[in-house]
Amino acid sequence: MVNSYKMTRAAELEALPIFRDFLDSVCKEHGIGSEFRYDLKLAMDEACTNIITHGYAGMNPGSIMMEVQFQPSHIRLSITDFGLAFEPVETAAPDVNALLEDRVASGFGLYFIYQTMDEVEYRTTVDCNMLTLVKRRHAPDAA
């Protein structure tokens, strides 16, 4: 058995603070520091916001299931939903050096996920859509 915690809520924006508080408290129990916790909450929040605003668009929303697993070397966050699937599109990363007038405030969600997590995997099957995020607890040893 791994140290695993899960929570399922309806996919609505009101669930965001509930998921964040839950993630924060189980991470605290496992002695995870505040910066690390912030990164996890940010990545989770961005992923859930995407599901809530796009994945379940046009229907009375279903569930989002969040599961967090604590391993000695890493933390694994799985976010499962049953809404519309997403597909990857190759785009330019947001330009973090653009002038103000050229700034668009979109595209940061997934960018933050990639910036804060060590592994990002998105899988969609007939059964569910699942985003798996892994953040290592220590920098890997140099080869």
């Binding site: 909450k41 929040d45 916001t49 103000l100 700034r103 405030a105 940061f108 969600g109």
Partner: peptide, 19 residues
């Protein structure tokens, strides 16, 4: 205690409008 990309949009919009 927390800001996400949605919060950044608020900041960016306010910056552009005030300027």
């Amino acid at each position: 205690d927390f800001i996400s990309s949605a919060g950044l949009r608020v900041v960016l919009t306010a910056m552009k409008q005030t300027r």
